[in-house]
Computed example of a mutant assay.
Amino acid sequence: MKTFFTILALIFSICLQAQPTKLVVRAKAKDAKFIGSSIGGAKVIIRDALTGEVLSQGITEGSTGNTGLIMKDPHERYKPITDEQTAGFMAEIEIEEPKFLTIEVIAPANQPQASVKAQTQLWLIPGKHIDGEGVVLEIPGFVVNVLSPQTHEFIKPSTIKLKANVVMMCGCTISNGGLWDAEKMEVQAILKKDGKHLKTVMMSVQDKVNTFEADVDIKEPGTYEAIVYAYDDRTGNTGVGKVNFIVGE
């Protein structure tokens, strides 16, 4: 009888041994492609949902994915829109029993002024991998960087050139008539002088993709702020960039 219970205890012990379990996490820009190496990736943090303990973390690596699969082909149930090159983060977590996880993604990781946090929760079962396409979190918005004027730049009263770089959250190109069509997006600069609204100016792509421009006459000395926003009413994507500059003699 003692031997029987010893064997039973051994079997029970083996059953509860930690098993390495794979979990793939990806970040996909809303109305665009996956967030990968070309824009610095997405930061992934996987936690025990009950204790907050970090079980794995890293950066998504790889390409933005296959444009045809993601943006053009009809999507079918169980048909993946990723391939082997598509950006993702592979975690391998050792667990003895089902564990409830919180998955957090911050993206794009190298654009802190534009990064968005998205999260979800799920149960991870020992030995039951969640790989392939894995868990995909959607990241809404645009990355907006004001190029001109520069931060705290001193400018003489004149016609100044407002410039802003606007891209999808995956870095995908915005151009006139392109797949992400600049002419169907609203990009404007809200100008403030000494803290008060001065004017709002429409910006558009001229000579260079992703670069929205506008000429603005500024004659009065003072401290100025330009708030550049991008908005697509078809998707609800939004993004904002800000800069402060000074006009003086």
Rank of each mutant, 00 (worst) to 15 (best):
M1R: 12
K2P: 03
T3Y: 09
F4K: 10
F5C: 03
L8Y: 02
A9V: 03
L10N: 11
I14W: 12
Q19P: 00
T21Q: 01
T21R: 01
V25P: 04
V25M: 04
A29D: 02
D31V: 02
D31M: 04
G36V: 04
S37D: 05
I45T: 15
R47N: 07
D48G: 11
G52F: 06
V54M: 10
L55N: 05
Q57H: 12
Q57Y: 11
T60F: 05
E61S: 15
G62P: 06
G65F: 04
G65L: 08
T67D: 14
I70G: 06
P74C: 13
H75V: 14
P80R: 13
I81M: 12
I81V: 15
T86K: 09
A87V: 12
A87M: 11
G88E: 10
E94V: 05
E94P: 02
F100D: 00
F100I: 08
I106S: 09
A107D: 03
P108L: 09
A109G: 00
N110V: 08
Q111V: 04
Q111T: 05
P112W: 14
P112M: 13
Q113C: 02
Q113S: 13
Q113F: 06
K117V: 12
A118S: 13
T120P: 06
Q121C: 12
L124F: 07
P126T: 06
P126M: 06
P126A: 08
K128C: 00
I130D: 01
D131T: 00
D131H: 04
V135E: 02
L137V: 04
L137H: 04
P140T: 09
F142A: 02
S148I: 00
P149H: 00
T151V: 09
T151F: 12
T151I: 08
H152P: 00
E153H: 09
F154V: 14
I155N: 03
K156T: 08
P157K: 12
S158P: 01
T159S: 11
T159E: 12
A164Q: 00
A164T: 05
N165S: 14
G171R: 03
C172T: 00
C172W: 05
I174C: 05
N176D: 10
N176W: 07
G177D: 05
G178V: 02
K184N: 11
M185S: 00
A189K: 06
I190A: 14
L191M: 15
D194K: 13
D194G: 11
T200K: 10
V201Y: 08
S204L: 09
K208W: 04
K208S: 14
V209W: 05
N210M: 08
T211F: 08
T211M: 13
F212D: 01
E213F: 08
V216E: 07
D217S: 14
K219Y: 07
T223A: 11
T223D: 10
E225I: 11
A226S: 10
A226L: 02
A226N: 02
V228H: 01
V228I: 14
Y231N: 13
Y231C: 06
D232Q: 14
D232Y: 10
D233I: 09
T238V: 11
V240E: 10
G241S: 11
G241K: 05
K242N: 13
V243K: 02
F245V: 06
G248F: 11
E249I: 07
